[in-house]
Simulated assay, not measured.
Amino acid sequence: MNAGVALLIIAIVLGIIVLAVLFTFVPVMLWVSALAAGVKVSIFTLVGMRLRRVTPSRVINPLIKAHKAGINVTTNQLESHYLAGGNVDRVVNALIAAHRANIELPFERCAAIDLAGRDVLDAVQMSVNPKVIETPFIAGVAMNGIEVKAKARITVRANIERLVGGAGEETVVARVGEGIVSTIGSSESHKKVLENPDLISQTVLSKGLDAGTAFEILSIDIADVDIGKNIGAELQTEQAEADKKIAQAKAEERRAMAVALEQEMKAKVQEMRAKVVESEATVPLALAEALREGNIGVMDYMNYQNISADTDMRGSIGKMSGDQKPNDKD
């Protein structure tokens, strides 16, 4: 009797363990919830998800939600999107939001948008409720050289058709900024921009800046306009300063060339003086050579000395006459 009770207890324990393992591996409660919601899912399908390392609740719960909302999706579609790394719950929520807003959004496109890294639910909500993007102050320079700063508010709506491969908000802001700078730059005066800031928004909006983006620009409103620096005057001042430095450099170059030429002339004069001194030094030697050879006599040499002395005396008298000041009485 005691052995039979022991075997019974062991059998009960083993049964409990088997049931625990079975209920852990097979999501029976999830299967029951799906049946209660009217979603026909085979228990073997759930077991297959376990074998494919798919969390059944990540697929079945969104499937129940879609079924209750009237969205026609299959288990295979949701499971394949899960295996591709997508967010099944967000895709189903986006499909429900699009269905409620009467926006045509097939499952394949919705899954592609999600796999592209974009928030498809946020895109659907933005299609219903447009988003306002505020740009920072964008500076442009009018033709009269005055800087004008403008801040714009861009109202955009998501374009479901271009969400895959379309440019984002940064591109829209950059294009609008480029349009603002171009419009301000084409204005003759900053006063015209201040008088009619709507001219900026009208000009920018007419350029079709939303082409190739994931958004559709509904309106561009100029929120604030401010006056900046006088860029034209600053550029003229900088140009004048640059011209001044160039002129100073050229003057310094001419001065250096003049100094170099003066030094060169002094060097030539000194060279000529040296040659004269050298030539004068050869005169006594030539006279001595002439005396030895008999080409000149002693009297000729004496006459040469007298003439040289007379020339020196006349030069001294001329210098003394030039140094004397004229007499007032004369």
Rank of each mutant, 00 (worst) to 15 (best):
E289W: 00
K68R: 15
R118V: 10
R100S: 08
T45H: 11
V269C: 02
Q77A: 09
L218H: 06
T155W: 09
P197F: 03
I12V: 14
L14Q: 05
G208F: 08
H99C: 00
G165D: 12
R157E: 13
V26G: 00
I16M: 10
A69V: 12
R175F: 10
T74D: 05
L83W: 02
G85L: 09
Q239H: 11
A174R: 11
S189K: 06
E79P: 03
V283E: 02
P27R: 04
V173R: 12
E79I: 02
V91M: 05
G294N: 04
E134N: 09
K40C: 04
R255C: 00
L51Q: 07
G168Y: 11
R90A: 11
S321H: 07
D122H: 08
V132M: 08
L291G: 04
G165E: 13
E104V: 11
I17T: 02
M257C: 00
T75G: 13
K329N: 11
N159T: 01
N76E: 14
R157Q: 15
Y304D: 01
V132H: 01
K68H: 14
K131N: 07
V141G: 00
L218A: 10
F137A: 01
S33G: 06
V128P: 05
V92D: 04
V13D: 08
R254S: 03
N93R: 11
R162S: 06
S42M: 01
A150N: 09
I43Y: 10
D300M: 10
I200V: 06
I160E: 00
G85E: 06
T203S: 15
M265T: 04
Q270C: 00
G15Q: 11
G179V: 04
V91T: 10
I246V: 13
G232H: 06
G179P: 00
S316N: 01
T311H: 05
A37E: 13
G322F: 07
K244D: 05
R50N: 14
R58A: 15
L199Q: 15
W31H: 12
D243N: 14
I9C: 09
E280D: 13
G140W: 04
S219M: 11
G322S: 07
F107D: 03
A3P: 02
A214D: 03
G85I: 11
S127R: 12
A174F: 10
L95D: 01
E289G: 12
I217V: 14
M29F: 15
G145A: 08
L19R: 06
A20Q: 03
A6Q: 09
T203W: 04
L22M: 15
I17P: 04
L78S: 02
